[in-house]
Design a protein around this nucleic acid. Structure first.
Length: 493
RNA sequence: GGCGCGUUAUCCAAGAGGCUAGGAGCCGGUCUGCAAAACCGUUAACGUCGGUUCGAAUCCGACACGCGCCUCCA
């Protein structure tokens, strides 16, 4: 099966055929750096991170460009509020963005350009558009004349008349047509500016992405991504600018991720229902957040709630616990290359072997189907169950069993490298979850240990009443006791 | 008003004409002094009404409900 991707331009899943065999050029709209990123940004980041990783896994040489919009009204407003300059604001939030995305385990794109480093390229495109009659200067601004581009709105499937009937477009007297959009904005006093043929000013929002993608990926490239909310006007305008300037197709496959919702409503600043990534990471582990995002298809809306995050954590713990159990065996007994011919697997072992054999084909099938990570996770869970069954019934680890265990462990590493999971040694991750939970309870580990010791004495003396009292006492504080042959350990509920 | 998307069991969530998705939970079991945890097993569904078909969650139509874009947005 070949890789198929859903293309917003055609509204269909299409077989992915890159422009140049073996190579992929991919551009994703990054963020406007004027504030901390919220969970919606995390989702877009993770969605395109696994697309980037999977394309590389599939053997493509991928050039992935993700920009920073570091000049914009919002950045200037924020700078004015704080009595500083736009550069200070932009640099601060670029750094914050990098920190957040690094914590989420995003692979760094090949190139991360800033709009302000590409003013020259932006001006060249605007000049070309003016020369070809697609743009006009007006009182220090330059606008794109949408009526000169017959394909305008082909991505979002609308038409100009209907858009105007919507009546929320403002009619500025600087514009020839109400839908015309700014390519260049003349600077007002106190605003940052660059020199241009039309006077001092700064670029409009849409033109920077055309300039940066063209600079690094050429006039036509394979994949352009972003959130669904960018389809109109941002991506529509990018197409108009780029195709009018270059006279050729801009992007072959348009990919858009779905929103993060709160109570079935879009998370957004204007509704005030957003959570920043750093807020959420105070409570939840970054890999848990990533796992939550991967648990739904990237185009579907996903509902952010404590319950859903808790479920994601349970699921990830199940996987990590299984891996920790495998590691314990593998660390104790390194796999030997000699397998005795008389050794055979039990029925459960054979079932695990079958799961292992199907693992990569099924994983690839899922990911080939428009990067269906949720389905891929299903494959991992099925393998976890088969592994647990095998470990539960296996008394003696033969060398053939050991080699199977090593193989299964490797499969999880391989899938994890595409999904961005299992980046932490399992024992360390599980310990981290435990200590994070410990920070939220009002009893010290020392106290817990003292009570466990007292309970052990009571139990040794067959005083189960006192033992159970202690257990209930700790349970009331959210501490679960785990009795085993090796003694009693504890965990936070 | 225009355009588009969605509705799958208690909850989350894949699937897209015949093939057990998966996870959480419930229930049962293993283990245990009893529990818990862990593990194993099990359970159940395709919004409504029509149509196409030997066969429909899946295709077509209507309806209902929810959501998104049309303004800065990931």
């Amino acid at each position: 099966m070949a890789l198929r991707v859903y293309n917003t331009l055609t509204g269909e899943k299409e077989v992915f055929v890159p422009l140049t065999p073996g190579k992929v050029g991919m551009y994703v709209c990054g963020v406007t750096v004027y504030d901390y990123c919220h969970i919606g940004h995390a989702r877009a980041g993770v969605a395109f991170d696994i697309i980037f990783r999977y394309l590389k896994y599939a053997g493509y040489d991928v050039t992935y460009v993700r920009n920073y919009t570091d000049i914009d009204d919002k950045i200037i407003n924020r700078a004015n509020q704080e009595g500083t300059d736009y550069r200070t604001i932009a640099d601060r939030y670029i750094q914050a963005f990098d920190e957040d995305m690094d914590r989420l385990g995003l692979a760094r794109p090949t190139i991360e350009p800033k709009a302000t480093d590409h003013i020259g390229g932006i001006i060249s495109i605007i000049e070309a558009l003016v020369a070809k009659g697609h743009a006009y200067a007006s009182e220090g601004d330059v606008y794109y004349a949408v009526e000169t581009f017959p394909d305008y709105l082909k991505l979002s499937g609308r038409n100009l008349e209907e858009m105007q009937a919507g009546a929320r477009v403002e009619v500025g007297d600087k514009k020839q047509h109400p839908m015309d959009f700014a390519l260049w904005k003349g600077s007002k006093p106190g605003e940052p500016w660059w020199q241009s043929p039309w006077g001092n000013g700064r670029p409009g929002w849409h033109i920077e992405c055309s300039a940066m993608s063209m600079e690094f990926l050429g006039k036509t490239f394979d994949i352009h991504g972003g959130g669904k909310d960018l389809v109109f006007p941002h991506h529509e305008n990018e197409i108009a600018q780029s195709e009018a300037a270059n006279g050729c197709q801009f992007v072959r496959y348009w990919l858009h991720n779905g929103f993060v919702n709160i109570n079935a409503e879009k998370m957004s600043k204007s509704l005030g229902n957003f959570f920043t990534i750093r807020e959420v990471l105070k409570t939840y582990d970054p890999e848990t957040l990533r796992f939550f995002i991967l648990s739904a298809h990237y185009r579907s809306p996903i509902d952010f709630s404590d319950q859903n995050l808790d479920e994601a954590q349970s699921g990830l713990e199940r996987m990590y616990s299984c891996l920790a159990a495998l590691d314990e065996i593998l660390i104790g007994e390194p796999p030997s290359s000699k397998i005795s011919v008389i050794e055979t697997l039990t029925q459960v072992g054979l079932e695990l072997q079958e799961k292992a054999d199907q693992f990569i084909p099924r994983f690839v099938d899922a990911m080939d189907d428009d990067f269906n990570a949720a389905q891929a996770l299903g494959v991992l869970f099925e393998t976890v169950r088969a592994t647990n069954r095998f470990l539960a019934e296996t008394r003696e680890i033969t060398s053939v069993a050991l080699s199977l265990i090593a193989h299964v462990r490797h499969l999880f590493v391989e899938a994890g490298s595409v999904l961005g999971l299992f980046m932490t040694p399992p024992a360390t991750w599980l310990e981290g979850i435990k200590s994070a939970k410990t920070g939220q309870i009002d009893i010290t580990p020392d106290e817990i240990e003292r009570l466990i010791a007292e309970r052990a004495e009571a139990r040794a003396a067959k005083n189960f009443k006192r033992g159970d009292e202690i257990r209930d006492l700790l349970l009331a504080k959210g501490i679960l006791l785990l009795d085993s042959a090796q003694g009693t350990s504890w965990n936070v509920k």
